[in-house]
């Protein structure tokens, strides 16, 4: 069985398209189990095997370079190389097959000192805490827990929510001086989050919907990834086939 505190992170890379994983991000993930997914998306006019024949060697070489970069920070990496018409479907499938806790939406990251963890509601908190703690534990980073309340009356609820996550993080080995909590009141929570994220280097955010094929990540995390400059780690919701609806997990 796998180590329960180890975090498995899927790192999808549009290989052959010159996408880079920032060095600092690689450093941050050096204590996590990384599944490096090199994918090459091709238009529907082209058979994947046709692209494979022509580009496999080049893609493998690029993937090997990336593996080297991860290993130079002491990380462990397993790799997958996929030719696909639909990268969302591929990322989703590999994330499930490889049992990943989080998926990295990569953006440039010059340095990584501050991580923001937006908490919207009481969903998936355990996994979010696990991932946030997993990537932060061995590094000297600050973690900001963030909640945007829509009106003044809900602020205390938000504080309680962040308190729970904070406790969970402390249990998982994060020092309390690394942690801070911010609750803001905002008409537009997404905008507030994007603004808060701009003073941080990495966003760790929970996936919104239970994943359904084709609706990867849900709206918020994708828009956060689009609008913030730094990398976003999307924490996947455990797909529980049995009692998802009753216990609310």
């Amino acid at each position: 069985m796998r180590n329960t505190t180890e975090v498995r992170v899927l790192v999808p890379v549009a290989i052959l398209k010159g996408q880079v994983i920032p060095d600092q991000m690689i450093r941050l993930l050096s204590h996590s189990a990384v599944v490096l997914l090199g994918y090459h998306e091709i238009p529907e006019q082209t058979a994947p095997e046709q692209a494979r024949e022509q580009f496999e060697g080049k893609a493998q070489a690029e993937l090997a370079d990336l593996v080297e970069a991860f290993e130079s920070w002491g990380g462990t990496v397993e790799t997958r190389l996929v030719f696909t018409h639909d990268s969302d479907q591929t990322i989703e499938r590999i994330a499930t097959e490889a049992d990943c806790d989080a998926v990295l939406l990569s953006n440039p990251a010059p340095s990584i000192d501050r991580i923001i963890v937006p908490i919207k509601e009481r969903i998936n908190l355990e996994s979010i805490a696990k991932v946030a703690a997993g990537v932060s534990r061995q590094h000297d980073v600050e973690i900001t827990l963030f909640h945007a309340a829509t009106e003044e009356a809900n602020v205390s609820d938000g504080e309680v929510l962040l308190g729970e996550v904070s406790d969970e993080l402390t249990t998982l080995g994060i020092r309390s001086d690394q942690l801070s909590r911010v609750v803001v009141v905002a008409q537009n929570p997404l905008q507030a989050l994007v603004e808060a994220a701009s003073t941080h280097d990495v966003v760790v955010i929970g996936e919104e919907e239970p994943t359904i094929r084709g609706r990867l990540f849900g709206e918020t995390s994708e828009r956060v990834a689009e609008q913030t400059v730094g990398p976003v780690l999307v924490v996947r919701r455990p797909i529980d086939p049995v009692d998802d609806d009753e216990t609310g997990l």
Binding site: R52, E56, Q60, R80, F83, T84
Partner: peptide
Amino acid sequence: VTVLESGTELERT
């Protein structure tokens, strides 16, 4: 998916 001998995968979409 089709998994080739080399480990490379071809997604079925």
